Amino acid sequence: MISLIAALAVDRVIGMENAMPWNLPADLAWFKRNTLNKPVIMGRHTWESIGRPLPGRKNIILSSQPGTDDRVTWVKSVDEAIAACGDVPEIMVIGGGRVYEQFLPKAQKLYLTHIDAEVEGDTHFPDYEPDDWESVFSEFHDADAQNSHSYCFEILERR
């Protein structure tokens, strides 16, 4: 099963200049909980913004210009990325925008964090048809001392 995991502000903004323009430790914990011990696929820009392999996960970098870091697996196509994951129950696609666009048609599940923030962004989550998805989990949280904005975790499964 292919799943996408993303944090989205208003207007589906997911990033600005290779960074997330908010401070939500709870979302980072949600991300870790849902990706640990699963292969993660990301684009080169996302890889560069993280700066290191995510521990406890097979890191697969999709790029037309593969790098030389041998701590991760470099691939040039969506099919190659899927094959590099091996026989696993769930593959997690973690961004960025172009990689989400490439995998959305193949995805069966979306793990979304909806952030109540209007922020400037240069990267967006692809538009998706809500009628194609069923919400199977939703959990709202107010902003607090650690988390700069209110947010809602949601899991959607393709109908």
Rank of each mutant, 00 (worst) to 15 (best):
140 F>P: 14
17 E>N: 04
24 L>E: 11
7 A>S: 02
44 R>C: 14
120 E>L: 13
61 I>S: 02
87 D>F: 12
126 P>C: 14
151 Y>H: 12
21 P>F: 00
80 E>P: 05
151 Y>K: 11
34 N>H: 10
53 P>Q: 11
76 K>W: 09
146 Q>A: 06
119 V>S: 12
10 V>W: 01
120 E>A: 04
21 P>K: 01
61 I>T: 01
28 L>S: 01
4 L>I: 13
89 P>C: 13
138 S>V: 09
137 F>S: 14
48 E>W: 15
2 I>R: 00
136 V>L: 08
86 G>T: 13
147 N>R: 03
38 K>C: 14
143 A>E: 07
47 W>A: 14
140 F>G: 14
75 V>I: 14
81 A>S: 04
67 G>I: 06
141 H>W: 06
110 L>G: 00
155 I>S: 06
127 D>M: 13
158 R>C: 07
90 E>W: 04
61 I>L: 14
149 H>A: 03
86 G>F: 10
114 H>D: 11
128 Y>K: 13
127 D>N: 11
51 G>D: 10
117 A>D: 09
36 L>R: 11
66 P>M: 07
82 I>H: 06
129 E>I: 12
83 A>H: 06
132 D>K: 12
8 L>A: 05
66 P>G: 08
145 A>D: 10
21 P>E: 00
130 P>I: 13
142 D>G: 11
122 D>E: 02
3 S>G: 00
154 E>A: 15
103 F>T: 11
77 S>D: 14
119 V>K: 04
139 E>Q: 07
83 A>D: 05
66 P>R: 11
93 V>M: 03
123 T>F: 00
119 V>W: 04
121 G>W: 00
101 E>K: 09
25 P>Q: 02
123 T>K: 10
52 R>Y: 09
67 G>L: 12
37 N>R: 10
108 Q>W: 08
78 V>Y: 14
115 I>R: 00
102 Q>A: 11
4 L>G: 00
13 V>Q: 02
122 D>P: 01
123 T>S: 08
86 G>N: 09
122 D>V: 01
110 L>V: 04
23 N>E: 06
86 G>A: 09
147 N>L: 02
45 H>P: 15
16 M>Q: 04
68 T>Y: 09
56 G>V: 06
98 R>Y: 15
112 L>H: 09
76 K>Y: 09
127 D>K: 14
